[in-house]
Design a protein around this nucleic acid. Structure first.
Length: 475
DNA sequence: AATAAGTTCAACCGCCCTTAA
DNA sequence: TTTAAGGGCGGTTGAACTTAT
């Protein structure tokens, strides 16, 4: 997209001070930098410079190449448009799914997401997401598919420690998921989960049952809604999510939670040889073992109304989480020995294995899986290694070692949140809607305003050609 | 055909982190 | 230990483009 280049784009410095803007042509003003769209000739200069000197030291481009661009601008232009093997064009459905999946786990970490999508830039992903998010928000559609929504909620809570959820834009977005009418008393638990609930026009808004389902009692007889603090990067549930069972009674069930089939860590010896590895949540298209190995999204066609029901998949005590933990424990002695020796925390010890399991996801296309495996093959890898094979610079730089493993960071938050949750009472009453049984849906089919989506409307498909085409009627 | 409204995306900005002096 | 430079990252902007009226 070519923008017209204003002469005022030539400025004194990088700070945007154009008070001394000049009308001189590009490249004529020494000591100044140009702003605005890049011209082909500028691109050529930059490409030539990078070929000769390699990436990095971007400020020297300005000094040595005659290019009147600041270092940052050069780096950006190179990274987003000029570097080899950049993919152009629309995102494929597979890429879209990966982005959605990653966003549910990482939030707005565009660069990390880009690292999982060879040939794509963080800017592209960011633009894609923002566009998509706006569109879905405007349409009143959920941002995430059901299983990822729960994960994203947990992620959000982990990062905000429950305190400002009603004010966070992220929570606002999540609140648009699986909407239910506010005026349905059966759907409320006396908790205002939706920041819009007090909006003067609140009747036109919906509350988010995903938050409501995490209901805990407190000592004051009130209630607090919490999302299970799953590690946002675990497909199977984090150590802390398992440990939570110590806080919520011996039934091993988080009342009202979509995770309610999570087992207790009972102390029984898990069968390490079991082949029943849990299926990752992000097996988008498969529709099996959807949420952390705990529940499934079944497309109920009995009454010709497409909706999902959340039903415990596994018998108590063997939901697959134990297997996941066993796998994680096995990982301790293999993949990350040296790293783990430096990290005395259980969460830290589990982090790398988690990553590997995550990337072993089934639903991904081969190139993506390959790229991810490459990325995850060594948990001590540097961030510089993320780039595509032929980008000759990131590897050559090798300066910046990844500051912290995101998994570690999040596991650390697991622990903190865990401490917080430990203060909740040991018993939580099982709500009536849960006892109504596994065969009943969550009531989505009873939503007053539910109407079948237009099958022709692509927006109702999470991404092209997936089981998400069967999303429930929500608006 | 003209205009408005909506969408896309390249580029910029500012903050933050790392590194070296 | 402090400070400045370099660079990375996420948020935001705004021009160009597309679609709707």
């Amino acid at each position: 997209m070519a923008r017209t280049v204003s002469n005022n784009d030539i400025t004194n410095d990088e700070t945007g001070d154009d008070s001394n803007a000049t009308t001189k042509e590009e490249g004529e003003v020494k000591g100044r930098v140009r702003k605005g769209p890049w011209t082909p000739s500028e691109d050529a200069i930059l490409v030539e410079y990078v070929k000769k000197h390699g990436e990095g030291n971007w400020n020297s481009v300005h000094k040595n190449s005659g290019l009147f661009r600041c270092g940052k601008s050069c780096r950006l232009r190179w990274a987003n448009h000029l570097r080899p093997n950049l993919k152009k064009g629309a995102f494929s459905p597979e890429e879209e799914q990966i982005i959605i999946d990653l966003h549910s786990k990482l939030g707005n970490k565009w660069a990390r997401m880009a690292a999982q999508l060879p040939g794509r830039t963080d800017n592209e992903i960011k633009n894609f997401w923002n566009t998509r998010m706006k569109r879905r928000q405007r349409a009143g559609l959920p941002i995430y598919p059901p299983e990822l929504h729960a994960e994203a909620t947990a992620f959000n809570l982990q990062h905000r420690y429950l305190e400002d959820i009603p004010h966070s834009s992220f929570a606002l977005l999540l609140s648009s998921c699986y909407p239910k009418k506010l005026d349905d008393p059966s759907q409320t638990n006396g908790f205002n989960a939706n920041p819009l609930q007090n909006h003067p026009d609140s009747a036109n808004f919906y509350i988010n049952p995903c938050l409501k389902h995490f209901k805990f009692s407190n000592d004051n007889g009130g209630s607090t809604n919490l999302a299970l603090p799953l590690s946002p990067l675990s497909q199977y549930g984090s150590s802390s999510s398992t440990l939570l069972n110590h806080s919520f009674g011996d039934h091993g069930i988080i009342s009202g939670s979509p995770y309610e089939s999570f087992p207790l860590v009972s102390g029984s010896t898990p069968d390490i040889s079991s082949n029943q590895t849990p299926t990752p949540a992000s097996s988008y298209a498969s529709g099996v073992d959807g949420l952390m190995g705990s529940s499934t999204m079944a497309n109920n066609n009995n009454n010709n109304n497409d909706y999902y029901e959340v039903a415990p998949l596994s018998p108590p005590g063997n939901s697959g989480l134990l297997d996941a933990l066993v796998m994680e424990a096995q990982g301790l002695s293999h993949n990350n020995k040296s790293k783990n020796e430096e990290d005395p925390t259980l969460a830290g010890k589990l982090s790398c294995k988690r990553k590997n399991m995550e990337y072993a996801d089934e639903g991904r296309t081969e190139p993506m899986v390959s790229a991810m495996k490459k990325n995850s093959s060594n948990c001590t890898t540097t961030e510089n290694q993320r780039d595509d094979d032929n980008s000759f610079s990131q590897l050559s730089k090798g300066k910046k070692v990844m500051r912290e493993d995101p998994m570690e960071e999040m596991n650390s938050m697991d622990d903190d949140l865990f401490s917080l949750l430990n203060q909740f009472p040991l018993e939580t009453p099982m709500p009536e809607w849960y006892r109504r049984g596994e065969s009943q849906s969550l009531g989505l089919e009873n939503q007053p305003n539910a109407s079948p989506p237009d099958p022709a409307d692509q927006e109702y498909a999470w991404t092209l050609g997936t089981c998400w085409n069967n999303m429930p009627s929500i608006c």
